[in-house]
Nucleic acid binder design. Structure first.
Lengths: 249, 249
DNA sequence: AGATCGCTATTTGTCTGACTAAATAGCCAA
DNA sequence: TTGGCTATTTAGTCAGACAAATAGCGATCT
């Protein structure tokens, strides 16, 4: 009866490359609705039967979507009570997918500020550790990333990927697995904030000199210098983003 | 035929208060197996039919468990290929559940060290921010937590909970949501490392003076002092844990 | 020989509908 | 008023069928 998904009847987006399976799409749809405040913490979702019917999917696909959201701390299910949106402090805000959902609907300035503050805490410390522990292969990948970033500029997808690569490799070079976990989060933050900046004003500043200073300090095995250089880099990025958001320049 | 779960036929633990539903239990069982290295990254799990039969659960329950693991980045499913364990750097190591799974089978010393290093980066910075931004309610909760911790000692569950409460509230008082997310991770780290310490030696040191120094600095709105006090606190905790693990004392 | 196209087998993905178990609310009796 | 029982609602679990995707293979063409 509702087998074929003809054009136009989809209540949820399934087009993007990510989340091409139904359960992923539903999770994304609901996830975006939750983090954007469309559902408030404490709200109870419609029961599984109604919800799955509204979305025109089977109950099992809907349930798998809910399991995904529950795994990320966004909802909590109990018999009789239903599925309710959990308090914000339980959300896995640093999960790459949750982060992506946040940026799908203009995140609040406060949230962006928090993300930068986190980068400001983590990345300088990571750069210092990386200066002590990086191996030659990591150094080489950082260099290549910066060269790529330099030639492609941040206006291209390749250039942005190189930027993320650089920051990723710094985190990796700390040799600290839990810390490295933050790379996907920080990488996502870098990506989305770059998009933000690009959207509002064009080519805010040449980011290369600051990046090279970080690289040079890590290559020279100078932790304090690396920390300071990274502090400056993130600080300037914060300023740029703030200026892009706040039109009072 | 396999309706009733009689005593002794369970292949997976379902007793604990958490993960009382089947999908949660299976997720935990597999999650522990993965993070403990029983399955290596790149390994492919048996197909859903075989796996669910082995575990004596329905395919749908097994699939929901896999969705949970996938949401935490531990596995990746694709038709024809199957479900494979992903690379370590994709794992959400800071997810509270994943962390719990780690500590269910003696985690490596390296992992513990990484966790402390992360605390050493995040918590002093958080204490400094908290000193600037805390409100009276948060201050009061910190004070109450420390009083509770003092009277109950870390040997009791209540005392440990109070310890976690204190660290939680410091994170919360930064007013930074993404940063606060780390509290469940850091809280878990605190909890498990406390267990570790208690297991190996008794009452390593009176932790109260260091805690009160952090509190006083935050109460006095002195960021630098708070940062230094927290640095010392975490540093001493690290030393204690290291001594508990490394018997060369 | 090599590349390319298309088939097929395998695996996850989706659907349906029924039954189970848990938790709550409300009623009824003490 | 209180305490416990019961009815109801909800998620949870199960079973089996069919659909979609794709890796790998084999046939075909160049």
């Amino acid at each position: 009866m509702r087998k074929k998904n003809k054009a136009g009847d989809g209540e949820f987006a399934r087009e993007g490359l990510a989340g091409s399976r139904i359960h992923g799409s539903i999770a994304r749809t609901l996830g975006v609705a939750i983090v954007s405040g469309q559902y408030a913490p404490g709200d109870i979702l419609n029961n599984e039967i109604d919800s799955s019917e509204q979305l025109q999917v089977s109950r099992s696909a809907y349930r798998e979507a809910i399991r995904i959201l529950a795994a990320k701390g966004l909802v909590e299910s109990r018999p009789k009570t239903g599925t309710r949106v959990t308090d914000r402090h339980r959300w896995s805000l640093l999960d790459p997918e949750v982060l992506a959902w946040f940026f799908e609907s203009e995140p609040s300035e406060e949230f962006l500020k928090g993300l930068y503050e986190l980068r400001m805490i983590v990345e300088p410390a990571a750069a210092a550790l990386a200066a002590e522990r990086r191996d030659d292969g990591q150094l080489e990948r950082m260099r290549k990333a910066l060269i790529q970033m330099e030639s492609q500029t941040l206006a291209t997808e390749a250039g942005q990927a190189a930027d993320r690569d650089f920051h990723d490799t710094v985190l990796e070079a700390t040799g600290n697995a839990p810390l490295f976990t933050l790379s996907s989060s920080i990488g996502a933050a870098v990506r989305w904030t770059t998009i933000f900046k690009q959207r509002k004003r064009e080519l805010p500043r040449d980011p290369m000199p600051d990046h090279w200073k970080v690289f040079d300090a890590i290559a020279a095995a100078r932790p304090d210098q690396a920390r300071q250089a990274m502090e400056k880099l993130v600080g300037l990025a914060l300023e740029d983003t703030r200026a892009a958001i706040d039109p009072k320049d």
